[in-house]
Every structure is written in structure tokens, then in C-alpha cells.
Write a protein that binds this DNA or RNA. Sequence first.
DNA 1: GCCGTTTGTTGATCCAGCGCAAATTCTTCC
DNA 2: GGAAGAATTTGCGCTGGATCAACAAACGGC
Lengths: 236, 236
Amino acid sequence: MNRPETITTASDDDFLPADLSDLLPFANLTVDQTQELLSLATIRRVRPNKAYFDEGESAKNFYVLLDGFLKIVRTTKDGDQVVILHIAPGQMFGIAKAFESDNYTTTARAASHGIALSWPSELWDRFVQDYPGFETASRKAVGARVCELQDKLVGMATQQVEQRIARAVLRLVEQAGKPTEQGIEIDFPLTRQDISEMTGTTLHSVSRCLSKWQKSGIVRSRRRRVVVCQPDALPV
Amino acid sequence: MNRPETITTASDDDFLPADLSDLLPFANLTVDQTQELLSLATIRRVRPNKAYFDEGESAKNFYVLLDGFLKIVRTTKDGDQVVILHIAPGQMFGIAKAFESDNYTTTARAASHGIALSWPSELWDRFVQDYPGFETASRKAVGARVCELQDKLVGMATQQVEQRIARAVLRLVEQAGKPTEQGIEIDFPLTRQDISEMTGTTLHSVSRCLSKWQKSGIVRSRRRRVVVCQPDALPV
DNA sequence: GCCGTTTGTTGATCCAGCGCAAATTCTTCC
DNA sequence: GGAAGAATTTGCGCTGGATCAACAAACGGC
């Protein structure tokens, strides 16, 4: 399970997604089409904190995340990382083609161990033509992303740190929440630093918030783990 | 010139855009196609501070701005306005169709008196089919917008107020700069409040900044007017 | 011209949250 | 099992900017 990053064709790989039609972009395809899709795909396994691709790189591929989570990140010239958004399994990413762009404008970094299907960007137009719903799905993805960016921007402009952290945690719960006895757990390792990069604050402030919430029984957090017990009690 | 808002068909109107091919979305069209385009269009004139459309409204039309400037805005539940971005002449807006969305997610408010062409959203698909370059242009617009949103987000997360204001002013200079003897003037009325809504700060801080810059001779601002004398001297 | 409204300036005060520092806990690797 | 490293907690002082407040200047309408 902890083997180094590998790149293989889908058919060679032992990880066989049982049903691609779970993935939004490829709903309503025939069996043949699904086969074709897989035969064209390359599987990439990426270890935590390694990048699928980097900001500025030429956009050679587009991806669909099968398993794991990743963060879309930008780095400023003085080294600050800012997390733009998170990608959950089933979602497309690296879709520069949808922006008519030749390069990635962000870095896609694995939050947890991840598996993704990838295709060369040259196939984009063919997918649009051959697979009904593919373009629609890509546009929806873009729309959702724009919406999320707008929300984040408004939040950054108007909300206090505590609210921003609450909102960020809540969003992660929605995207990556796994029910446990304690409450809903965010299903990938998440440090205070990570949260601070999502909310434009410091890990110290995040730590203070989580501690406070823990005392009120709203969350229950261990090292790299966050469990939300009472989502509604978060000071959104 | 100051007549109330009017809605007319393009051919009825006295404002006849000499050359639609200046507008990115409609480059490389035949004369016939341009004619057709215009005959389908409705012209909307909107007075300063009035909206072309409002957040949440069903996306009945898409637009191309002919003249004037407008701000894409979101309002929070407690009344704070946040300016997401600005639109300059020649650009498309209200393109919910590009996001596969049925409603506008933002408000488009005229910064200065504005004139726009609009078409019913039902025509979008036809435009995509009939007009070469239309879809490409729309995707580029979306890409540019996403990029700008990302930049803004990173700025909000990492920069101090003064830098954010400087960046915002600089961007406006690029988008709406008109050369004068004094320097480059931002070509529409712009209050301190407006700038504060773009940068997530208060009009007080903006005023202080501008005053400071004025003392150094970097800018020269009157009521509702900002002229940048030394763009390079702005503390970006 | 006069008056009301909108916009801009500037001072004074206050506090959320950052920066720094030190201690503590958890994890991994010898 | 112990040492080194990574992640977290917590205290404290300081400051960038928000908030409050008062005034000044510009403009539009009559």
C-alpha cells in the first residue's frame, strides 16, 4: 500500500474501478465506451504531499480523482502556500482545457494517498464529442469551482478568523466526512497548518479555535485528525 | 445622454457598434453573421449603480458590454457588499450558461453609465454551433475569471491592506486606464467605499492610503476620481 | 446663492489576531 | 526502548486596522 508512486495503464493495474459510471463525468456511457475510456487512461498513484502537477507546468493531462483527497494550491513568491480548494473522489481536476489554457495555474497536491485516472489533454475534444454529458459535467465542475472561489473570497473579505475556520471545517466535513461513533471525521490527515493555509491565518489561531471548540464538545481532534461532533454548533 | 434605462432591439437603437469584430467573442464572423447577431440582440442601457441582473435571479440572458464599466458583486446576509471583479467593454458577462447554471450567482452593477448587448440564454447553444470562436472566447473568459479570483484570494490571504489596495488600483488602471496629462486615470467614478469593497477593508483605510500616496506624488485623486501618476511606485 | 446630501479626511481608541517563544505530546525510525 | 522529529498547545506582548467620532469639502437641486 505504501509503494512508491507508479504510473501504469489502467488495464495493467490491479486497481480496477468497479463502476466508472459512479464518476459524474462518465455517467450514462455504454460498456464499450467505458472500456475504451479505461484503455486510454493512465493510472497515477501519488503519495501524500506529492504533486500531481505543478503550477505553471504545461497542461499535458487532465484527471479524475478515484480515491484520496487533494488540495489545489498556490504558492506566493515569498513562499506562502494558499489552499484554493479541495478535490474529492469522483471530481475532475487539471482541466486546463476547460479554460482554453495551455498551462496549469495551480498545483495539485495529494492530501492523502491518492489514485487518479489521467488522459492526455489532446483527448479532451474527442471526449467532448464522443461522451454525452462529459462537457456538461466539466462545465458544472467549473461552475462549482467559480462559486466556491466566490464564496471563499466573500468570506475572506467579511468574516472573522473563527468563522472562516468554522466554514472551512464544515466544508471539509461535507466533502470528506466519514461517520464514526464520535461524530463525523474528516477522512484525511489534516494539520492545523493545513487549515491555516485554507483560511489565510496562522496555525496558532487554528489551534486555539479547535481547543476552544473541543472544550465545548463541538469537535474532537487528535494529531492530524479532526472529528466534528456537533456540526450545527460551529459558529458559522 | 442621461435618459432613463431603455431596452430596445439593436436595429432600433441609435447606438450602432461600428464593428462587432472588435469584441473578442465575435471575431472572424462574416458580415451576414454580424447582421444576424445584431438582429437577435437587445440593447440595454443601464444607469450608474443600477443592476443588469441580480444575484439569484434566473439567468434569462447573457451579455457583452459595449461601453462603460461594471462590477460583479455579492452581498452577504448582513448587507456587506463585496466586489468580486470588474468587467470592461468588450467582455462577456452573465454567462451562467458557461457554468451550466440556471441562475446568476452574482449581481452585475453598473459602475458608470453602461451599454450592453444581450441575448436570451436559449441562443447560447446556437451561438456555440454557428459562430466559430464563440465557445473558445467564452472558455477563455471563464479561465481569466478563475485566474483573477485565485489571485484575489491569494492576495486576501497573504497581503496587507496597503498592498491589496495598491494591487486593486493597479488592476483598474490596466482595465480602465485613460492617459491624461497628470497620469493614467481610472475611467469611471470610483469612491473610497468602492475600493474598500474590492479589497475587504474600510473606506477609512483606503482614504488614508490614497492620502499617503498623494503626498508622495504617486497618485492624484479627487472626489470619485483616481489618477495614478507613478504606477511603478505603488507598493505592490 | 443656499441647503441638504454624498463623499472624503483625519484623529483617537481599542482589540482580534499575529509573531515569538517555550513546553508538551505524538510518531517514527533506529 | 530511546532519540529525533513533527505536530500541537499555550502564554504574552505588540500592532495593523477596525471602529467611533467629528469635521470638511464637493456636488446637485431649487
